[in-house]
Design a protein around this nucleic acid. Structure first.
Lengths: 153, 153
DNA sequence: TTTGCTGCAAATACTTTGCAGCGTT
DNA sequence: AACGCTGCAAAGTATTTGCAGCAAA
């Protein structure tokens, strides 16, 4: 599993830099997140992890995710379901950066990656402009479109 | 108060179309939301409303907001504080459409309105493209930048 | 009069915290 | 050995629901 090693190495460095340790629950969560293009909730992550590591509790999943979010490794989303969902910021699966179409009715989420060059460039410019104007260090961005999906119209 | 009448008229139509009634709590919430460029939480709305209408309870605020959200009159945000925040989608105060810079540390929010023409145009194109591609009816969009504000860097 | 919105209180769901124990470094 | 992560159970907080009463059309 070349990819797993890549992830491990990358995150291992993050951890070292921040002074945190690479523990079993963290490895498990990061590997799970790196294997999906979905946005798992805490509960979903917990159940999956539990299959392989029955001793890891829900609390640890919460705490680990909080840390990963604070390190800018993971982004925490709220799509209005009353629970949070999580996603790797730098996804290693070639999925890369993507955004969301969110159905207001059934809460289904479509990932889209088709931001053309012009758009990417424009977002970069906007980021630079806002950053300077508001003296704000921008780490990540989110573009979401809300509406009704095919089935709910 | 011309503006209040405009809002009332506009929403009154929405209500009629949807078959819902224009009640005191709804008027109160809509007027409050139309008077601020902030993103009040349920609790904040409740306290404000309570000053003028002591009989309106928190439950009603929740329920009313849910309805307004489902009618696409109000957008529900979650900035990661563990509570939701609300904002009129078509703000009548000339504030117009805006987006957010969100500080990951102190959770402060900066509104920015300076999307230049090129950007607006581009978002419109993107919307059209996505809409067609995914057979998705887009009603609103959100562009958020996450990072560290002036004070938290 | 009828429909369906309101309010209170209780219930629910998600998330956080206290504290003792354990694993890494 | 020391530091600080981990798990369980309990606590906390935001949000939802049941049900009787009431208001608007």
């Amino acid at each position: 599993m070349k990819k797993n090693n890549e992830i491990t190495n990358k995150l291992f460095q993050n951890f070292k830099e921040k002074g945190y340790r690479l523990t079993t629950p963290r490895k498990a969560i990061l590997l799970l997140l790196s294997k999906t293009d979905d946005h798992p909730s805490v509960e979903e992550l917990y159940f999956d992890i539990h299959k392989n590591y029955p001793s890891i509790g829900m609390t640890t999943v919460y705490r680990t995710l909080d840390l990963l979010v604070s390190w800018n490794v993971v982004h925490k989303f709220d799509f209005g379901e009353g629970r949070s969902r999580y996603e790797l910021i730098d996804h290693p699966n070639g999925l890369g950066h993507h955004h969301h179409l969110i159905c207001c009715n059934c809460k289904s989420i479509i990932n889209y990656t088709d931001l053309i060059d012009k758009e990417v460039e424009l977002i970069a410019k906007l980021e630079k402009r806002l950053s300077k104007r508001y003296d704000f260090e921008i780490n990540s961005h989110v573009i979401e479109f809300y509406g009704l999906c095919k089935n709910c119209r």
